[in-house]
Design a binder for these strands. Structure first.
Lengths: 334, 334
DNA sequence: TTGTATGCGTTATCAG
DNA sequence: CTGATAACGCATACAA
């Protein structure tokens, strides 16, 4: 049996209005009735019905977070941060993995009258944007950004992070550096990281040719394997490689291993993401870290901010950081 | 602006009852009014309010899934399966990572009047059980089971799976086999897997002493590192090791590497879980696979079954399977 | 075939 | 300080 406010009222011999006041600890009742009511609540094991509340308050204390694929290794950390921050703010999170039916989910979330939406990684199409705009709920982009629409985002600067990774390699004495890139047409993870890579080379007066970049289909393990193969075919003398994701970096390490190339002795490799997995590879992977967990937290904070102040909020560029492990070696400059 | 059924009714010149009938496609209206109403809905971009519906129907089309820690690498696959099956059934899933505040979450889920609960990995305490029982919603255990409470579960047989792993090693010519175990006091992942290991040894007449097992604190990477160290100290002549999780197996591989022990040439290692990561280690890890995704799907199917038929449902033992990679070598029997 | 009215469990606005 | 009572958006029994 599940009790209602009416049951409590009856048991405590007061009106439901009074119970409501006490439950929401507003003012307007004596200590005595409060005791009485609290006791009734306790005895009945009463819990307010959040559904009924939502109907009135127009707040469901639920936010939706969309991932393009839940199986990506990035999501656990992000989701962890999101979930944590949301729970601390008294909200829950509905996860949606939008394998090609994003609009479906958007409709569902709309009907559920969620309080806000966090949109991850995936590109925000016009259709999505317009629909969410109509829903009239706060939206923030996480680990992605939109050039076409004025939507606040939280992410690392891909360009700067890629620059840092490359610079790290350079400062370790490398000047024959290649990059295993993800999809070149990916406006953010693809293009921006390539730009960062080139900028670093340029700033340190290291000549660049297209042979130094292998363009892959995606950012996965297999892409890293393929990428390294392509890369060393084009540029056999590389001493260091920047991979655009940890998965790719680990794929590259594997390929190097198969090819008898020693990492890091003969080839240094730096990754991007700093997944849990990075610490578990052989050798442990040096990587530029995105503060995934914190980014998740930040995104929900931004949502709540927009909710409370009912106004736009500023985008956040989160700090990246290189975490030193063992896949990059210092090279004697000769 | 977000419209209500009233707006639609007004625009179509009918009563809200008629609109309701059409929206829920029941019978009792003419084709003509249907057209009219549908058009009004279309023009307004009306979507029924799931909150209001939930208040009446006592179904929120939302289920909660609890994980002890979202950062564990097991969750992505499970969550993926859960989320998929739920969405196909028209429901959404709220994720909760119950880092030491499970009761909190349970209360929240209760207030939100979710339709069912999936409880993962963690042990179902008396307190949790009693509370959920009072909530009066379907509960299924995922990748765990309860001896104390009559709750349906879906999982692999840990004993059988561990037996299979050990048998696999034996059939590859090994008879000096060790095990890196997780927490011995863990009733399911700990104890059951140890039992399976011992049973296999016994069935094949391979002598067993306690020196063949390293008991670790948990099932993580670091535990695997520590575990292998302990194990070879106690039993230096091992040719094969069964690790109770992939993370541990990969930790063990790392430790072996540090110790100059070649895997698999000098030491074969088999893991448990078949995480994505298993395919990415060097060498790629042979592992006994739990069908995590399918288990997730199955769990929600069971929930909906209980919901519809309003009765208990049978537990499911899912098939495990050894996926052959390169971390176990065939040994000449001399 | 259609409309009216009631209730789902709350909150909030009034009076008292 | 307290209690009726009207919403909230919808579904449904009952009338018409």
């Amino acid at each position: 049996m599940t009790y209602t406010i009416k049951d409590v009222a009856k048991k405590a011999n007061v009106s439901i209005a009074t119970v409501s006041r006490i439950v929401n600890n507003q003012t307007g009742y004596s200590e005595k009735t409060k005791k009485k009511v609290l006791q009734a609540i306790e005895e009945l094991g009463y819990h307010p019905n959040a559904i009924a509340r939502g109907l009135i308050n127009k707040r469901t204390h639920t936010i939706g977070v969309l991932f393009p694929e839940l199986s990506s290794m990035l999501v656990t950390d992000i989701l962890n941060g999101v979930e944590n921050a949301a729970h601390e703010a008294g909200s829950s999170v509905i996860v949606c993995h939008t394998k090609s039916k994003t609009m479906n989910y958007l409709r569902l979330l709309n009907e559920k009258r969620i309080d806000g939406i966090i949109f991850t990684s995936e590109i925000l199409t016009n259709e999505y944007y317009e629909y969410i705009k109509k829903m009239n709920v706060p939206l923030v982009l996480l680990a992605t950004e939109s050039y076409a629409h004025p939507v606040p985002y939280v992410k690392v600067s891909d360009t700067h992070a890629a620059y840092s990774a490359t610079q790290y390699l350079i400062k370790h004495g490398h000047n024959q550096i290649g990059m295993i890139s993800g999809n070149k047409n990916d406006k953010v993870a693809g293009y921006l990281r390539i730009t960062g890579f080139k900028n670093a080379l340029n700033d340190y007066n290291i000549p660049f040719t297209e042979d130094q970049i292998a363009y892959c289909k995606g950012f996965r393990y297999q892409d890293g394997i393929d990428g390294l193969e392509m890369l060393i075919k084009k540029s056999p003398n590389l001493t260091a490689v920047f991979a655009a994701s940890d998965e790719m970096a680990i794929g590259a390490i594997f390929k190097a291993y198969k090819l008898g190339i020693k990492v890091p002795e003969e080839l240094s490799i730096i990754g991007y993401d700093n997944l849990k997995m990075a610490a578990m590879s052989i050798p442990p992977l040096t990587s530029v870290a995105q503060p995934l967990y914190e980014m998740g937290e930040m995104a929900v904070k931004m949502i709540f901010n927009m909710l409370e102040n009912n106004q736009a909020v500023e985008s956040r560029i989160m700090p990246h950081q290189i975490v030193d492990r063992e896949s990059v070696i210092k090279r004697e400059t000769n």
